[in-house]
Amino acid sequence: MNIDLSINPSLVRGLLTRFIRTEITRTGFSRGVLGLSGGIDSALVAYLAAEALGPENLLCVRMPYKTSSQDSLDHAMLVIQDLGVPYLDVPISEMADGLIARFPDMSNVRKGNIMARCRMIVLYDQSEAFKGLVIGTGNKTEILLGYSTLYGDSAHALNPIGDLYKAQVRQLAREVGVPQPILEKAPSADLWAGQTDEQELGFTYEEADKLLYLLVDQRYTPEECVQAGFERAFVETVVRRVRRNHFKRVMPPVAKITTRTVGYDFLYLRDWGT
């Protein structure tokens, strides 16, 4: 079965730069803050945001932990130099190790979550200092699979690329001129040496994108996905992941006890009044 995830990159580029500009300026801001990991997602968002806001209005922050690879830092610098945006280096090793050292047998998952949340604290602090909104960099594949840290990398004021699958992120990244080494390398959260997303997830983004596209965008049932040629075990794994991680995609439930309750029958867009 031929599943085509191609997009018209120039159409999407225009739409997303308008989104960033409008949704930041209507709230009274004119600047953005971005964590730049050296990977393709944040690089793409940096290009879009620099185009939308003007490079001088985008603060890119590199936040290495001591195990972060030099490549990640170098690749982030390629983006910074190419765009001419202001940047800051705020290493998070001391912050993170202050907590990690208390628990000598801490798992990699716990450490990874702490690092992601340390970075969130740095970005939100810079948000106030630079007077810019934090721009998110999670893509649709990640969001659906729940491959993120709640209140870590999932915390931001707006997300321009959250409706693009990883394959579509790649297409758009080529369009906006993300440097070649970033386009070519294997996706990694870089939380520990040699980590890659696909190794940790147990499947490739290419497979996941196509399956999610059928399940979510095209409303295929899991059984229809199996009939379309996907391994049953893989379909089940992905369906389970999407459901189990749904809590990361919604606001936490408020217990309803009165006649009007935030989240249920007190409903307004963020853009209310703007």
């Binding site: 739409l15 989104f19 409008t22 853009d271």
Partner: peptide, 8 residues
């Protein structure tokens, strides 16, 4: 034209 949250 314009946006309302993520809708364009």
């Amino acid at each position: 034209v314009g946006f309302e949250d993520g809708l364009n």
